[in-house]
Design a protein around this nucleic acid. Structure first.
Lengths: 357, 357
DNA sequence: CGCGACCGTGGAAGCGGTTCCATTGACTCT
DNA sequence: AGAGTCAATGGAACCGCTTCCACGGTCGCG
């Protein structure tokens, strides 16, 4: 079933069929009707590969995302899919779990034959990759990562770190520990480091000490964070609060607290970062970043460029952070019963929203 | 940068370059070396669209999945991605939120020009779609859905319903309510209905009554389940246990119980279905289905066919269900304190596994 | 030593579209 | 009425690759 069959059936040339398909104005109404009838009769659909080859683009958006099953990645993807829905673009997923992975994918994506546009999440891509992609004319948007000369959708992670720390200090905490990602992660994530910087700045500004061992790092999984947290909770000068640089890790901290027999927030306050879906359920106080919105915005920026509605605008699109207060935080030393808190809770708009998902 | 450039640079014909690219044995070692050098020198990569057009396939696997952000879908996708990793196939995601959506996608996927193989999740596709796809020679695997003549990866949902109900009966419960998906959902999901059937069968076999109003249905979101649960928990003959046909809904039941001031599992036992990630954290007793494994198996079956290692084998690949006992269930009337349960818990292998994600 | 196999290779045809160019015929304008 | 426009259309060229076919050169064998 090719365009030639349709042309024959309608008694016209292939070019005319193509013009009808592409809504060219240069076709008479009667011819158009005949062609459409033939298309209908033969149940013809253009071959996307042939279209792609001929047009030099492939109606596909590539999303390069590390560990796509991580809750935060999923939320972002949800935003991307929402933005793509109704457009003519398909979504191809490139999952990244190592630098080799990343470089392979970025190398194949330097032309419009695999994806017409690229969303790269959370990965600071090697500058030479970026440059090749840009030079090749493939529009790209970074999410949760920065690079000069490229549109990015970001939040201010340093500020987020400040927000969480200041909140704990305002509650009256003085012994505040930090648990974050390992600094030398192979994919070069920097959000964790920036959140740590915000933490350190704020502690310093408040004149609060950060003893050795109050800052520790662990791989981005719950179990690892729990172990590291166990260590700091076992110190004689046990902190009264922990700021974890992700909700996943904060959940690990909560587990460690439970294992250590500490009441939360009675003995220990915990603040996370991200506001993934579980967090609402776990009652975790956290710094919410608009994950869904970030994906949606990135996809929209890309579509605007691809469909000629806008020029690529290098520069940051900053999304705001917001502290969501739930039930894992309280002033230090106030011994709440664990029981009375129950599950869930929280007071942000987000909670109402997440109900209905 | 085309194959002709490489050919010119290596001083050979285009055909020879193609043979080298495709590991044809009919190339002399010296020529092969020259071509490889040229490829290297020019940093040449074949255009996948042109390859696809010429070969009649596109090195892509399509996954059609309703509501891909649902926890269960994500787990399955994770399995698919794992199976695809290392293969030469890309993954294209077709998210489905309505029958129109579904039919549009299935209609475009009846040829090898958009995807070489198809995984359809949780959707009973219209028989004529299936037939067209099969006739077109596009391998397809259904997950969590059945159709004659097509390979499927399934679980026995009726049996799962029995499992959960029998477990509650064995604990000593007699007043057991059921909350499930609406029967007339537009996409035709049947898992919920089957789980309900298992529930009804087991109740009948045990001679236990199922009063009017003990079985109710709600859309597959937490909030809706909570409202429906609130109704049944408000009855004079309040049930001592609720079996919800998904974990998402079970979480809604837990919320309703909390709102009603009922202790879980003291006043009310709750069993869910799926074992999504949150469930371990929430301590929910549930019927675990191997979601990750189902995705992985489906992708592997498909790859085996696509790479000629196997013929498509219509028939069911059944994966086993397993009851995971956690802390939302207990014999009726035993008044546990809510506090002592804390969070998490559970005794399945799964829990250890999920720690390390 | 001559003939047929066969290996290695170049080049053309084809995959199914899009787009440019040339052609035709109707229509306008002087 | 003839020249010039312009709309509608057919058809060829092209996108970049695979694959088939044909051809020249070796080699083995009689």
């Amino acid at each position: 079933m090719t365009i030639a069959d349709v042309a024959a059936h309608a008694g016209v040339g292939a070019g005319t069929v193509s013009r009808v398909l592409n809504n060219s104005p240069r076709v008479s109404p009667t011819t158009r009707a005949r062609v459409l009838a033939a298309i209908e009769a033969l149940d013809y659909r253009p071959n996307p590969l042939a279209q792609g080859l001929s047009r030099g683009r492939c109606q596909t958006l590539g999303v390069v995302v590390p560990f796509f099953t991580h809750a935060s990645a999923i939320e972002r993807l949800r935003g991307v899919v929402a933005a793509l829905d109704g457009s003519r673009y398909d979504l191809v997923l490139f999952n990244v779990e190592s630098p080799v992975h990343r470089d392979e994918h970025l190398a194949t994506l330097t032309r419009r034959d695999r994806a017409d546009g690229l969303i790269v999440m959370s990965l600071p891509p090697p500058p030479e990759s970026i440059e090749r992609i840009v030079r090749a004319g493939v529009p790209i948007v970074l999410v949760d990562a920065r690079a000069p000369g490229v549109p990015t959708v970001v939040t201010d992670d340093v500020e987020g770190g400040r927000l969480a720390t200041r909140y704990l200090i305002d509650l009256g905490h003085e012994r505040i520990a930090f648990i974050g990602d390992e600094h030398d992660n192979p994919l070069g994530f920097i959000a964790g480091r920036e959140r740590e910087q915000g933490y350190r700045e704020t502690m310093a500004a408040a004149g609060l000490p950060v003893p050795d061992g109050y800052v520790d790092h662990a791989p981005h999984v719950r179990g690892a964070a729990r172990e590291v947290a166990a260590r700091v909770l076992d110190r004689p000068d046990r902190p009264t609060a922990v700021f974890a640089s992700s909700d996943t890790q904060a959940l690990g901290v909560l587990e460690a607290a439970r294992a250590a027999g500490l009441a939360v927030p009675g003995d220990l306050s915990v603040v996370g970062f991200d506001d993934i879906e579980v967090s609402g359920y776990a009652g975790l106080t956290t710094v919410r970043q608009p994950l869904y919105e970030s994906g949606r915005l990135a996809a929209r920026l890309l579509l605007d460029v691809l469909e000629g509605r806008a020029e690529p605008e290098p520069g940051e699109h900053r999304l705001e952070l917001e502290l969501v207060e739930r039930t894992t935080t309280a002033p230090p030393g106030r011994r709440d019963t664990f029981a009375s808190r129950g599950r869930g809770g929280g007071h942000s708009v987000r909670d109402r929203v997440s109900e209905e998902r």
